[in-house]
Design a protein around this nucleic acid. Structure first.
Length: 434
DNA sequence: TTTTGAGTTGTTCGA
DNA sequence: GTCGAACAACTCAAA
């Protein structure tokens, strides 16, 4: 008879320290085997040089080394989770499976299926809140329905915040409960159909930025933002640590940005339709122009609007774009070019290392005006004015648009005043009889 | 139930 | 150059 074990399943929480589910697994009383699955359902949709796969791969390799220092190991599998789990149950006597909550539509379905499957096998499936301070039903209005406006959401989120919710889970005290094992396999990137990306990943060091964040965050040439998106996405940074650091540094604006992340996660949880449809349904009546060649020009950074082109080229070359510029390019695509916000959302999903479905959909719908708590539709960013305000010395533009100021630079794809009047008319017509 | 104040990030126009 | 109002009403949240 094999000895019963617990399994901890890593997904978007790729760290050993301060990890809720991992902590509870280690305290379960059974030896813990850590597991990661490269999910074929997800990977099959990605290009072979997807940088996020490289990031995950490197992180997984680091976790494996770290676990080996404690005479344990990380079991790494490649395939569809349902099939992998059947294999695992054949190889091990599993008493319980531990993991952390995952809130996106695909993940919810996967975990619902897992729960059903494991229950039928008489195996406990225990899941924990880890990637947010407050999840799904924790921040609600008095009538128990979810907030759709940020400010009152944040008021409650902030009022409820206390050290109980931000303290670290001391996993390291219980490493002795890891399952002793060694030489577990690690499939290569190549076997899984990927190659190593040439992009570099943002370092996890944000503390020095917090003091000046409020003052500098809006100026793309300054690099005044913290670049933690990727680390929050894959869990190489604990949200509890980020919030503790925000409070300690008295960086209130940064703290509220962390709450924005949870606000949009709450929206996606309670209104999953909004990943694909406009939150305000009447906005799906808009007659988008959806011109393919204009979309291509936008993607490639050839619109003839320097601030837009700079942003898109930064995205294409680095997998990251400054937040201020994300708003500008999103407004430009949806308003100036009248291209469906979903096209832009999909492009960002392909390119952004820090892609987070909830924030991305929320941000795009905000820009389009179709979202909860969105910018009014008549608020059309003027790229020239945005440049004057936020890149007055054109430093950001010159960094990314090398031919700026020469004859080689593209002519504006559409004239601003004309585009503005066009979008106001089209939106007005779509929204008039609703 | 009704009322009241407010709503991430903007732009344009006219005084 | 600077400032306030208009943009367009609407919906949300809470008292």
């Amino acid at each position: 008879m094999k000895k019963a074990i617990s399994i901890f399943w890593f997904r978007r929480d790729l760290r050993l320290t301060d990890n809720a589910g991992f902590y509870h697994a280690l305290k379960s009383g059974h030896p813990v085997l850590p597991l990661f699955i490269f999910d074929k359902n997800i990977l099959d949709k990605l290009p072979e040089d997807d940088a996020r796969v490289t990031f995950i791969y490197q992180t997984i390799a680091d976790l494996k080394k770290e676990l080996q220092k404690h005479d344990s190991d990380l079991l790494v599998k490649y395939g569809k989770p349902e099939k992998i789990w059947s294999e695992i149950l054949g190889d091990y006597e599993v008493a319980a499976v531990y993991t952390n909550h995952d809130y996106e539509p695909y993940a919810r379905e996967r975990d619902d299926n897992m729960a059903e499957f494991l229950t039928s096998e008489k195996i406990a499936f225990k899941t924990y809140k880890d990637q947010v301070i407050f999840e799904k039903g924790e921040i609600l209005k008095a009538d128990k329905t979810p907030y759709t406006v940020f400010t009152p959401f944040y008021k409650q989120w902030h009022a409820k915040l206390n050290p109980f919710y931000t303290k670290a889970y001391p996993t390291q005290k219980y490493y002795k409960n890891l399952l002793p094992c060694k030489d577990l396999p690690l499939p290569s990137l190549k076997e899984m159909g990927f190659e190593k990306s040439k992009l570099s990943f943002p370092k996890l060091s944000y503390k020095s930025k917090l003091d000046s964040y409020a003052k500098e965050r809006d100026f793309p040439a300054l690099d005044g933002t913290t670049h933690i998106g990727l680390h929050l996405r894959f869990g190489t940074l604990s949200i509890r640590k980020a919030v503790r650091d925000a409070i300690e540094a008295k960086s209130n604006i940064w703290l509220s940005e962390l709450a924005w992340r949870e606000f949009y996660m709450s929206i996606l949880w309670h209104f999953p339709y909004s990943a694909a449809d406009s939150f305000k349904k009447q906005y799906d009546k808009i007659k988008w122009r959806n011109n393919e060649s204009e979309f291509k020009a936008w993607c490639e950074g050839n619109t003839g609007y320097p601030i837009v082109d700079a942003g898109m080229r930064q995205l294409n070359q680095t997998g990251w774009m400054h937040n201020r510029v994300r708003m500008v390019v999103a407004s430009f695509l949806t308003k100036h070019l009248l291209i469906d916000w979903r096209w832009g959302e999909t492009y960002f999903a392909e390119k952004l290392l820090d892609y987070e479905m909830a924030s991305n959909v929320g941000g795009w719908q905000w820009a389009a005006g179709s979202g909860n708590d969105a910018a009014p539709y008549f608020r059309v960013f003027n790229p020239e004015l945005q440049t004057k305000k936020f890149d007055p010395k054109l430093e950001y533009i010159k960094k990314w648009v090398l031919e700026f100021g020469t004859k080689k630079y593209a002519q504006p794809i559409v004239e601003h005043t004309f585009a503005r009047e066009r979008v106001l008319k089209v939106f007005k017509e779509a929204l008039a009889n609703s």
